[in-house]
Design a protein around this nucleic acid. Structure first.
Lengths: 247, 247
DNA sequence: CGAGCACTTGATCGCTTTCAATAGCTGTGG
DNA sequence: CCACAGCTATTGAAAGCGATCAAGTGCTCG
């Protein structure tokens, strides 16, 4: 409510998400154009950034923090449909609203552009449009992976899949390319994990306990997870342990 | 196995998917460029068009017929992650394979482009890239809608949701804008519907019977469906009956 | 110290799956 | 023409998994 809407690095070249965000492909001169129209906004944990159905006059990238995209049915059942980590893009050029609630899970800072200027920019600088297409295709792939999890996996496999996705994303962010035990923090409550996986919070809790008891993971507090053997976790997730890499 | 790979309309302006496919935004001169590199391929019902993990040296649009995108786990559980109807696009520019099986559900004809020339075309003619971005964003929205269905809806709601999606898509294809009873054919077996919805074929069958018994739908044979009251169906699907339109 | 919140754990219920038998349709060959 | 194989779909009965309802624990913050 009282978060300042001005902040940090006005300089794109120092930006922590410079190489992964929608601007990743931009040349120096294109960055300048973006720099001229960008502005930062911050939200506190728990704040709703955009309400489903609302008009949305900006688009933007998550710079730091985490947000979720959720859909809610009239009777309150909710399903998370997107987990927005730093560098992820929010908003849809060419459409005035989102059909999802966008909610800050942690304190979050976004790099925003008013929609109209951004759309013009897209038309003029192919690098932005290209990168956005690539990111959207990646998100579509992720959504389809997620559909397999939701539709066909057991509760235990769902939890293991979620942990393995999270672990890999975390590792790629830290450039932590190698093996050995993997440690990361859960950015979500048990309830939010349930909303991600189509489970109740009780089932999430039970399966976390079960995985811990079976030595697949270790818990340090409620949120810090250690995975001693990643291939074991992927087995539990029902995925090929070899990772199934494609060119 | 013996389907001829040559056919029909070499003329884009007569093409039935001209206004919805990846070429929808193209001007006459751009169409000519596409026309020069396109070729048709046909597949018979049941044929696998692309195997998961295979190298894929073309991209293309479905001209007529229906195909599915599916993921399969090692133990055989399968989840459909895409239903490809006429005008839908297959393949991912900038990547050499799909992680999904693409299977022809009916006899199908596709309008194909070798990947390299198509990628060049994309770089040169923004109208193609623009349209592809728009279509990908639409697919992402559809995938997210689908995730709510998979994660949170009951079997009955899943079936009702599927029928309502199918009905609306069919109506928009026929420009059948108005109300009154809606009639269409199911393009999928009970098993494929189960793979779409994360259900077993038995549950699909039971819920179809139940919806029929309750007067929500009428069945004419196993495949022809009549929906006397669309808003009733959408209620059963757990969706807002008013359709929740966004600008 | 007590309120509020996230989480854990237990007991029971019910929906969907699983296993199994049967029906209906289509095409093939005697 | 009918019998039969093969496939899709329906229906029944039983089992199992996750949801629901209900306490209870542990932590943080006033």
């Amino acid at each position: 409510m009282n978060a300042p809407n001005q902040t940090i690095s006005p300089n794109c070249s120092d930006c922590p998400i410079r190489h992964r965000a929608v601007c990743a492909r931009c040349e120096a001169d294109e960055l300048q154009t973006l720099e001229a129209i960008k502005y930062y906004r911050s939200f506190e944990a728990g704040q709703t950034i955009i309400w489903s159905g609302d008009k949305m006059d900006f688009v933007g990238s998550v710079v730091s923090g985490i947000a979720t995209l959720t859909q809610t049915m009239e009777d309150g059942r909710t399903q998370m449909v997107g987990l927005l980590l730093p560098s992820d893009f929010v908003g849809r050029p060419g459409r005035s609203g989102t059909p999802y609630d966008v909610v800050a899970t942690t304190d979050i800072t976004m790099c925003c552009f008013r929609k109209k200027p951004f759309e013009q920019m897209m038309a003029n600088t192919p690098h932005v449009a290209q990168r956005l297409l690539e990111m959207t295709l990646d998100e579509l792939d992720a959504a389809r992976e997620w559909m397999l999890v939701l539709g066909r996996k057991t509760a235990r496999e769902k939890i293991a899949s979620f942990l393995s996705i999270l672990g890999r994303r975390d590792a790629s962010l830290k450039q932590d390319g190698n093996s050995g035990p993997m440690v990361f923090d859960l950015p979500l409550t048990r309830e939010a994990m349930g909303d991600y996986l189509g489970l109740t919070l009780e089932t999430v809790s039970r399966q976390m306990t079960a995985l811990k008891k079976d030595g697949v993971i270790t818990l340090d507090g409620k949120r810090r997870v250690t995975v001693p053997d990643m291939s074991r976790l992927m087995e539990e997730a029902g995925d090929d342990a070899d990772g199934g890499v494609f060119a």
